[in-house]
Simulated scan of single mutants.
Amino acid sequence: MPTSSAHLHDDRPTKPAMWRGLRRRCPNCGEGMMFQGYLKVADNCPVCEEDLHHHRADDGPAYLTILIVAHILGFVMHFAFVHLRPDPMVLAVVLTIVCVSLSLYLLPRLKGMIVAIQWARRMHGFGAN
């Protein structure tokens, strides 16, 4: 009897893993921290011992961070310039602070999400039990 690809991934559902990754938690148990530092993924989960060293997040989190931050700031810049008309230096300083803060907040969360997706889809060596 043929098996569907959905059946192969039932034991690792993607959506809960993504939410755990966004919280910077282990995609398997959701309890242990995924990172040892700001962006360094731990080799193993400290709670369930799940191997996490297989990940290949590479530049994906940075690209997603730029995409999200640029769209948010583009809207804010347009709205502020059209409706509020602040001084250009004030607008530049405020947008710079918002851009840096939002980027630093999103980057580890998006990296966690990408690692969790790779874990759920059994990519890059995550397929072993």
Results as ranks from 00 to 15, higher is better:
3 T>H: 11
8 L>A: 13
17 A>L: 14
18 M>F: 12
18 M>L: 15
22 L>I: 13
23 R>Q: 10
25 R>P: 04
25 R>T: 06
28 N>S: 15
28 N>K: 15
28 N>L: 12
29 C>Y: 01
31 E>G: 11
35 F>V: 00
39 L>D: 02
39 L>T: 04
39 L>P: 02
40 K>C: 00
41 V>A: 00
42 A>Y: 06
45 C>F: 12
45 C>I: 13
48 C>K: 10
53 H>N: 01
58 D>H: 03
61 P>Y: 14
66 I>N: 07
66 I>C: 14
67 L>E: 06
69 V>N: 03
70 A>P: 00
74 G>L: 11
76 V>T: 09
76 V>A: 13
77 M>E: 10
78 H>P: 01
80 A>D: 08
82 V>S: 07
83 H>S: 14
85 R>P: 00
88 P>K: 10
88 P>T: 13
90 V>Y: 09
90 V>G: 05
91 L>T: 00
92 A>F: 11
94 V>S: 11
95 L>F: 04
97 I>D: 10
97 I>G: 09
97 I>E: 05
97 I>A: 15
99 C>D: 10
100 V>C: 07
102 L>Q: 04
103 S>R: 08
104 L>R: 14
104 L>S: 06
105 Y>S: 06
106 L>F: 12
108 P>C: 04
108 P>T: 08
110 L>Q: 06
110 L>G: 12
110 L>Y: 03
113 M>G: 06
117 I>L: 14
120 A>V: 08
121 R>D: 05
123 M>D: 09
126 F>C: 01
127 G>W: 02
127 G>A: 00
128 A>W: 01
129 N>W: 12
